[in-house]
Design a protein around this nucleic acid. Sequence first.
DNA 1: CTTGACTCTATAGCGACTACAGATTGTTAA
DNA 2: TTAACAATCTGTAGTCGCTATAGAGTCAAG
Lengths: 156, 156
Amino acid sequence: MKIGELARVTGTPVETIRYYEREGLLADPPRTEGNFRIYDESHVERLSFVRHCRSLDMALDEVRILLRFKDAPAENCGDVNTLLDAHIGHVAARIRELLALEQQLTSLRERCHEARDAAHCGILNELSQPPRQGATNEGGHVHGVHGGARARNAGK
Amino acid sequence: MKIGELARVTGTPVETIRYYEREGLLADPPRTEGNFRIYDESHVERLSFVRHCRSLDMALDEVRILLRFKDAPAENCGDVNTLLDAHIGHVAARIRELLALEQQLTSLRERCHEARDAAHCGILNELSQPPRQGATNEGGHVHGVHGGARARNAGK
DNA sequence: CTTGACTCTATAGCGACTACAGATTGTTAA
DNA sequence: TTAACAATCTGTAGTCGCTATAGAGTCAAG
């Protein structure tokens, strides 16, 4: 099959497949005479693996590590558990941060229930003060709320 | 004061201050004869405002909007409330997504309690299957768990 | 033989910085 | 005075995981 079909069966944009290849997540496939990539079932499986990992929000570096274990079936998979535990830890930490953030935002919102003029807006005044010490983005290995290009275009 | 002191009192890296200036969040300050930027209290306040917003995970575009309201004190601040409500909505949505993700990861982790060889590892086998339909990253305007450069270097 | 769908490579853009390189400017100690 | 050193300047490239072009080539159907 050609790249378009692989894209269709795995639900992956064509450019993303080529990107994964550049990044070394997928091996360079054979080519037709006309230089088109040709794939088979083994490529479908490998790409599905990558996409499944990504749907679980793993970084490509983490996926690379998991792929290495997949390619060395005799090796002990204890490190797979370790990696997964670490990833779960990142997610849990981010959840805690966002819950704290939500509380701060809600309490900020309390400061201005009815629309008034900006000069006396409690929200704007509060934001001019330095942030409280318990602010987010202290713990490393987590990320903001706003989408990059992917998330922003997801609904289009 | 020079940029280093502004950086110190606001807890902001020097490069970030210059970046905000390039982005138009901070006005171009006056310069000394030797071309050094000079700041006063008004700059401290404005930068603190930006940093406080950022510590609440607002996008720079959202901060720009809030700054416009701050600079037009006569205007109605109802849109400030609207913006903040939208932001709270984004955070809440991301929390829900991450909770679902945490559950998926935990149930995946269940598949391999003791370390075994990778050929029979339940985790790796499960990841080879296509992701379940309720996967994350469907709802737009949200983001991954992994840090960019900022988060990754935060602990160094 | 042409149209159109598909594919190819290469490159730039997103957000919010971070990290240099290489040049100046300013401050302090010998 | 001078030399070392810190601080600042501009400009550019890198981060992550794609996405979106431009411009050229390949291929099947009509």
